[in-house]
Amino acid sequence: MIRAENVSYSYPGNAQTVAGLSFHIEKGEFAAILGENGAGKTTTVKLIDGLLKPTEGKMTVNGLDTAKSRVSERAAQVGFLFQNPDRQICRNTVREEIAFGLRAVWGRREEDKIRTRTDELLERFGFTGDEDPFALSRGQRQQVALASTLAPSPAVLILDEPTTGLDYRECTRIMDFIRQLNEEEGTTVVMVCHDMEVVLDYARRALVMAGGRLLADGPVREIFRDEALMKKASLLPPQIIRIAGELGEGFREADDAETLSSLVAAKAERRRGA
């Protein structure tokens, strides 16, 4: 689905921002890109979207070379949800906002199809359609942005820190929706996220970056359990993983508070019985 072959990128006049990236993300995966600020995460997702073209190497998405096609042409296949919904929203009503993106992708002649799809999304997200996006809360605006990103049913969904500025409930709502999309419709998801708890709860694969290079690539839990790697990337694993790791053998596999507390309680019980 997404194939990076030795991709490098440097912003004009600057040193290389990312270098020698090679990875392969299959259809239906849910991958998170981790790393501290300046590690090259956003550059990488922009390369996947084709907003940036590799200065070296080759990036293909769905078989299309990003360097040889225009972003606006590929928008039907790749959706990009930005950190700040206000850069995306430009219409006076939620309905218009969703239809605007569809028109850009499908063309103006498809009005019937656009109307049907817009209605479908409005219902799914619980909007009437007449709301003024600028009067909504940040979390709701992010949902409007997500709805219009998803409108053309892209096969790949890219999220760049989608939960910044959202509270816990809003964050959960957005992420649950994305998980559902990933599981039920097989949408490939690539996410940049600073919240390690969110990554643990939702992503299945993690790519760790530092200094513009790919440090590691593997299942989320394995990555989080690799203490040396986490340290090298200036990342702090989720609390439960740290607690479980510290408690050692017999606990290490636990990754949520429920399981871990049961394991500890069971051991305490055995102790008392003995």
Binding site: D167, Y168, R169, E197, P238, Q239, I240, I243, D256, A257, E258, L260, S261, S262, V264, A265, A268, E269
Partner: peptide, 19 residues
């Protein structure tokens, strides 16, 4: 009210409950 809580706190309260 929809406020997150540190997982460590969740863990300690579950542990108290279970033991």
């Amino acid at each position: 009210i929809g406020v997150n809580c540190p997982r460590a706190a969740l863990f300690s309260s579950l542990l108290a409950e279970k033991t």
